[in-house]
Amino acid sequence: MEGMHRILDIGVCEQDVLATVIHVDGSAYRREGACMLFREDGTQIGLLSAGCLEADVAARVQDLRRKGVSETIVFDMQAEDDLSWGQGAGCNGAVHVLLEPVDERLQQHLKTLKLYLDQGIEVTILKKLNDIGAVSDYLFLAGRHTFGEWSGHVPEEVEHYMNERTKKSGMFFVSGLSAYIYVHTIWPKSRVIVFGAGMDAIPLVKLAAQSGFSTVVSDWRPALCSRANFPEADELIVAFPEEAFQRIRFTPRDFILILTHQFQRDQQVLRYLLTKAVRYIGVLGSNLRTQRLLGGSAIPPIVKSPVGLSIGADGPEEIAVSIVAELISLQRSDCQKGMVLS
């Protein structure tokens, strides 16, 4: 849910309107959980579709602010003619979009949501909808902690759903509440840590940041590991590997990329990382070179070499695409499996 991360990073203000795709019948450009923020100053953050819905939603936002209540809008894009809404988009889907004006309480709860995500804790949102598609109650669940505006107890069938390992986003009917519930789990940003700040790392870090990853670059050469080269990076660590290791707390969510272009440095980083619990270690270069880095030993399953998807990439930009595409694929797979990474 990169849109929500971006919204939280920028910050939500009172009088903003949060738009969320809560249900899709058929196919659509984006699925449940896609969100977008309409700022009071007219700016917009995120996307709900390929551009089919945004203008219509924006036209309704001002009226929604005056009413001060949430509502659900259904956009039927199944028709392929120009007589229905969608002007022949032909997406074969009906998209349900929840619009929520941000008041002081919701603003504070979204700030709390960001705090948990920044600590690496996944957060699940429950929103109870009334007969007209407005939010009557909402609850955030972060581990054993809860916050939000929820009256009464949470039914057992909802708790059972929340305890399942696979948490699919969307709406379902809860008989104990006689109401529909929208459920969505927001996962903390995965972190991409790049060892090596050469020219080929620049498009890689930029694309990873644009794709919703938190990014860290480490290199011992200050002329390379600089804000001028990596303006999008969340953190720059100018240090030799042995010092950088002490400054980084590695986690099972971390994707590591090794591209210092110096054999001994690559070897030092790789051998150290094999002692840590991380999600992925990608090594730039051939399979044979990586075996040499390991002293001739077999390459462990956690190590990907050559790094990235096999798309025939050539040059820094294409290689960056192949690498980030692979990271996105792994990240999506983890979320679908409901992996709890701590």
Rank of each mutant, 00 (worst) to 15 (best):
5 H>N: 10
148 G>S: 08
278 V>E: 05
157 E>F: 09
312 G>Y: 15
298 A>I: 11
329 S>E: 15
272 Y>R: 06
68 G>S: 06
20 T>L: 04
214 S>N: 07
103 D>C: 01
308 G>E: 07
118 D>F: 07
299 I>H: 13
134 A>H: 02
257 L>S: 08
301 P>K: 13
216 V>A: 06
290 T>Y: 08
314 D>M: 09
257 L>I: 15
50 A>R: 07
6 R>H: 14
253 R>N: 08
295 G>A: 08
338 G>R: 10
98 L>M: 11
322 S>M: 04
292 R>K: 15
164 E>W: 01
66 R>G: 11
95 V>Q: 01
14 E>N: 02
330 L>H: 13
211 S>K: 04
186 I>K: 04
2 E>L: 12
290 T>M: 05
189 K>L: 10
302 I>A: 04
334 D>W: 10
338 G>N: 11
154 V>L: 06
227 R>V: 13
85 W>C: 06
49 S>N: 07
203 P>N: 04
272 Y>G: 03
336 Q>K: 14
47 L>T: 12
218 S>A: 15
103 D>M: 02
22 I>K: 00
55 A>S: 14
267 Q>N: 12
186 I>W: 03
245 F>L: 08
15 Q>M: 09
169 S>H: 04
18 L>A: 00
97 V>R: 00
192 V>C: 09
245 F>Q: 10
238 V>E: 10
222 P>E: 07
107 Q>N: 04
243 E>V: 12
19 A>N: 00
156 E>G: 06
59 A>H: 10
313 A>I: 09
255 F>R: 03
330 L>R: 09
5 H>D: 06
271 R>P: 00
307 V>W: 05
121 I>M: 14
295 G>Q: 07
122 E>L: 07
340 V>Y: 07
314 D>L: 07
281 I>M: 03
39 R>L: 01
49 S>T: 14
318 E>R: 08
324 V>F: 01
39 R>Q: 11
298 A>P: 14
180 Y>L: 03
210 Q>G: 05
162 M>P: 02
245 F>A: 05
47 L>Y: 11
233 A>Q: 01
333 S>V: 03
153 H>K: 14
284 L>A: 00
335 C>G: 01
78 Q>P: 01
62 Q>A: 15
299 I>T: 09
87 Q>P: 01
94 A>C: 12
43 T>A: 14
119 Q>E: 11
210 Q>V: 02
256 I>H: 09
144 R>Q: 14
51 G>A: 09
310 S>W: 06
14 E>S: 04
136 S>R: 02
164 E>S: 07
90 G>I: 12
271 R>E: 11
96 H>A: 02
263 F>C: 04
63 D>G: 13
268 Q>T: 15
70 S>E: 00
72 T>F: 00
181 I>N: 01
38 F>V: 03
41 D>H: 01
183 V>L: 15
220 W>Y: 13
48 L>Q: 09
183 V>A: 10
227 R>D: 10
175 S>A: 13
12 V>G: 02
303 V>W: 04
97 V>K: 00
180 Y>A: 02
333 S>T: 11
67 K>C: 14
183 V>W: 08
200 D>Y: 10
160 H>P: 00
32 E>K: 00
28 A>Y: 12
326 E>G: 06
76 D>I: 10
118 D>G: 13
48 L>K: 06
30 R>H: 12
